[in-house]
Amino acid sequence: MTPLQYYLALAAALFAVGAWGVVARRNIILVVMCLELMLNAVNIALAAFSNYSAIGPGRGEVFVFIVLAVAAAEVAVGLAIGIAMYRLRERLDVDELDDLKG
């Protein structure tokens, strides 16, 4: 059996890659995609804990299902915002959305 820590390390790495993408790329659609990567990282950690934990078998998996549904909702709204933005400005640069600057 592969130790739990391996899975956690994988989750941490995937999370960091996602975070890097969110911060580094300018295209709003890619930012949404990277958010999905981060959610996947969390899902891996949850499923791993669920598999290795001595208490409450399957609880983590239930969580993953809920995360999946919320992620679907988030993608739908995020992409809708992207399309609306494109229609409004004809550009997808996240930095364009700075109307709230002080």
């Binding site: 969110v22 911060v23 930012v31 996240v94 930095d95 700075d98 709230l100 600057k101």
Partner: peptide, 21 residues
């Protein structure tokens, strides 16, 4: 105080995200 700290609120979302990270 608002005048002094205003530049921090750039409105650039990714700047905020980076700060969060």
């Amino acid at each position: 105080a608002g005048r002094a700290f205003r530049p921090i609120q750039s409105g650039k979302i990714q700047g905020y995200l980076f700060a969060m990270m």
